[in-house]
């Protein structure tokens, strides 16, 4: 059983507070780039190299990894840092929670009930849309320099103007798409 919005909202708020009180605001989507960089660097050694010129001490031929003094390049070269460990721990925490509540039912593991009500049982149709959505979501999150965690929650809690702009864009697009794509409720 999921938590009521009151208990859940309070706990989620305390986690965001703990993060900013003890370290820094929560963010997730950067780690998709770091993981891409790690994969690239493992097949091509020139992806990230040591550099005297960059502030971080690392450089990359890729302009994105090389930006801000090679900050991402450094995280690729030294992945045992806060950002990546945070995301790995998040994955572990969610997995632990799921085990303790008895896991997710078999039909739900392929698609949520509301998808089934609108598009039927085919897992491949669901996976195709999930893959395309993941692509668009992470492209968008990197274009925005943050996602639901970093911009919407961490951003708005700090009264960041960018957080409000991001939330406006996300809901302005997300609500019409959801209304159009899911006319039927889950049965």
């Amino acid at each position: 059983m999921i938590l009521s919005w009151r208990t859940g909202g309070l706990l989620l708020g305390l986690v965001f507070l703990a993060a900013v009180a003890l370290v820094k605001p929560i963010g997730v989507s950067t780690q998709f780039v770091i993981l891409d960089g790690i994969v690239w660097n493992s097949v091509e050694k020139s992806a990230v190299v040591k550099s005297e010129k960059n502030k971080s001490g690392y450089a990359s031929p890729n302009a994105y990894l090389n930006k801000s003094g090679g900050a991402y390049a450094k995280n690729v070269a030294q992945p045992a840092n806060y950002g990546l460990l945070f995301v790995l721990a998040m994955i572990g925490g969610a997995g632990l929670s799921a085990i303790l509540r008895g896991g997710v039912s078999r039909p739900e593991r392929t698609m949520p009930a509301i998808w089934r009500a609108n598009y039927g049982d085919s897992p491949w149709k669901r996976y195709a849309i999930a893959f395309a959505s993941g692509f668009v979501v992470l492209y968008g999150a990197r274009l925005a320099s943050g996602c639901t965690s970093g911009h919407m929650m961490s951003g708005m809690m700090q009264t960041a103007v960018s957080g409000f702009i991001f939330a406006a864009g996300a809901f302005a697009a997300g609500i019409p798409v959801a209304l159009l794509m899911f006319p039927k409720d889950a049965r």
Binding site: V28, S29, F32, V87, M90, P112, I114, W115, I129, A130, A132, S133, G134, F135, V136, V137, L138, Y139, G140, A141, R142, L143, A144, S145, G146, C147, T148, S149, G150, H151, G155, A160, V161, S162, G163, I165, F166, A167, A168, G169, A170, F171, A172, A173, G174, I175, V177, A178, M181
Partner: peptide
């Protein structure tokens, strides 16, 4: 984080996939 036009466009792109799949990065 910095505010720029891409924050809105990126937010909108994220919103599309967020709605279509029901997931965000985290």
């Amino acid at each position: 984080k910095t505010a720029y036009v891409g924050v809105f466009i990126g937010g909108a792109l994220l919103g599309i996939g967020f709605a279509a799949a029901g997931y965000c990065p985290g």
